[in-house]
Design a protein around this nucleic acid. Structure first.
Lengths: 361, 361
DNA sequence: TTGTATGCGTTATCAG
DNA sequence: CTGATAACGCATACAA
């Protein structure tokens, strides 16, 4: 009876399998069964024609292709996911796309994943706390792997992710556990390097504008900076807290330079903060950069190399980081266990005009 | 026999349904059947417990939840897609995330779609030509709708998309057809407004730096600008072609001001171009902005309001555009036909220091 | 309230 | 080379 009914239904569908019906029923997609009927072959042959692997006679192939064309048939990937337990879906979790560093990296990821035959499921997490909201989605769509491109990912957040038993690659945050591997840039060493540069350029007193208090990257950069300053016999830096945004850098610089200690070198946890600080210095405090204050950032966002900015900063080897991440994801997606050792990519110091008058355009 | 075998398999799985097996077999996710067995109830009851709608006795419910917890069970959405023909997946197709305008909009979309219970499948298209590569993916994952946030979408590209018979919303590009609706900002009128502003600020000769030649938005902005200049009795603007990027604006300004005609007002098709042009003017040509040249852009990206930039520009009402897009997508996802009339949202002129000395910080 | 049976659109296996 | 048929994991109509 069911077969009967189906035959009738599809008899009608033959002519127009994806149109409105009198009753309002709407058959959106033709299935391989529909195509098979129109082509006069078995459903298996349709499947084989489209999967390409098996061999199908030329005549059958032609019939199938014609029917498929007529019916606008597109094979669905959904059933395949059920069979193979692989969705070919990779989740990328992002926080602040306002930071050009992350949007650039995201774009790079998309391009690379697409090239590798994976699709990207994009998720947004405003803060670590909201992680719980997206966890269910991640599992429900059976994503093969998760890339966390969050500026902030706490160990607790990482633990939550690990419960999913889906491989997680933490991009730019050095957290690790059984299911979480990290790919991040060298932060501590960068802090040390910039301290040396500042001193070489003649600075005597130092400042630091941090990211959010919960950012491990910001903390590491600061630690390296402070350690090296200590080693070189300089006093500890004055510290103000920013939020990784332009406005935060602007405000932090304003308050820092309204205080008693006015550093003559300022390291900021990222470029947006640094640009905000420079603007506060130049436009509001009428201080000259680099003549009165040296400034450096981290990320090498496009604006850092604008002629009007010329910001000394660190270029994380984003290409290498993306490469590493992709290869980890691909092997994880192939079922191989995660290599648990964290990957650390070095960041290269780029000196521009904000620490060197000779480099001003 | 099959049942026999399955029982055996799952007998083992009971204890550890998602662990490595001696043979290397790996059962990643527990299914509702597994949970049912452990809980000692039928699979239907598990389904009912998790769908929430039907009524399940408290005792059954508790047994199911306990078993699910033990097995780390997460219902899969995949079968549901097969049943309902709705994936709850919305594809967002992006091109240049290097433009902060688009990355900001993308972030807004993600937040809104997630709140509405949809997931975002992100696709990248470097150029209109590459559209064909992603079309199959779009159909294969049975996305409910497609949002095209491409800076450039040709009518031909739109036609290609339409063949999918999936509702498409073209964001910021005014192309339309049976399956493609557009939500874009008012471009022509903006061009007219900026012409008036330039004239009011005393400009006599005019320039325009365009986006890529294929960008309809750029073309419309230019048309409005030229029309109004003509109406006001000014000569036609000198035109140079950029590419929507900082570097393009920089180079275009350089070449334009090396030529015979040096405009004293310059309208750029977007903010990145404008900022590049300003830097070329100030840093390389030693011209003052706004004293020697007035400059305006379009998009109101964050950098436009930086103290060091202070760019006069147009704010597209991005929130309203996203709102409109979301509501179209949601109704389309509910099976309603597309309302085919294009939506146009006005953009608001924001005057800052690059056209007005009094507004310099 | 609970259990049984069926279908969704593929791929894979196994006979012809 | 081709065609049946059995899964995959869930939702749901139907029977109990």
């Amino acid at each position: 009876m069911t077969a009967e009914k189906k035959a009738a239904t599809l008899g009608a569908a033959d002519a127009s399998p994806d149109q409105d019906w009198p009753g309002g029923t709407f058959k959106k997609y033709a299935s391989s069964v529909d195509v098979a009927r129109v082509a006069g072959v078995s459903q298996s042959q349709v499947s084989r024609t489209f999967s390409g692997s098996s061999k199908v006679s030329e005549s059958t192939r032609k019939k199938v292709l014609e029917a498929a064309e007529r019916l606008d048939y597109r094979p669905s990937l959904i059933p395949r996911i059920m069979l193979t337990h692989k969705s070919n879906l990779v989740a990328i979790v992002v926080g602040g796309l306002y930071n050009p560093f992350y949007s650039t990296v995201l774009e790079e990821f998309m391009i690379r994943f697409q090239a590798a035959g994976h699709q990207v499921l994009l998720l947004h997490i405003p803060n670590d706390h909201a992680l719980d909201d997206v966890i269910p989605k991640l599992a429900s769509y059976r994503v093969d792997a998760i890339v966390s491109a969050l500026a902030i990912l706490s160990p607790a957040g990482a633990a939550t992710l690990a419960k999913l038993k889906i491989p997680v690659i933490a991009f730019n945050t050095a957290v690790n556990n059984e299911w979480v591997t990290s790919v991040s840039s060298e932060n501590f060493e960068a802090g040390r390097q910039i301290a040396d540069l500042f001193i070489a350029r003649g600075a005597r007193s130092f400042g630091f504008i941090s990211g959010p208090s919960t950012s491990p990257a910001s903390a590491r950069r600061r630690e390296g900076y402070e350690e090296r300053l200590r080693e070189r016999g300089a006093g500890p830096p004055t510290v103000a807290r920013g939020d990784y945004r332009y406005e935060g850098g602007f405000a932090a610089a304003l308050s820092m330079f309204s205080g008693p200690s006015r550093p003559d070198a300022l390291f900021c946890a990222n470029d947006l903060l640094a640009i905000g600080a420079i603007d506060a210095l130049r436009e509001r405090l009428v201080l000259r950069v680099p003549d009165d204050v040296l400034v450096a950032g981290f990320d090498d966002i496009p604006a850092a190399s604008w002629a009007s900015v010329g910001l000394t900063t660190f270029t994380p080897d984003a290409a290498a980081m993306v490469d590493e991440t992709i290869s980890i994801v691909l092997s994880a997606a192939n079922g191989k266990p995660l290599a648990t050792k964290p990957v650390v990519v070095s960041a290269k110091l780029i000196e521009r005009g904000t620490t060197n008058r000779d480099l001003r355009s």
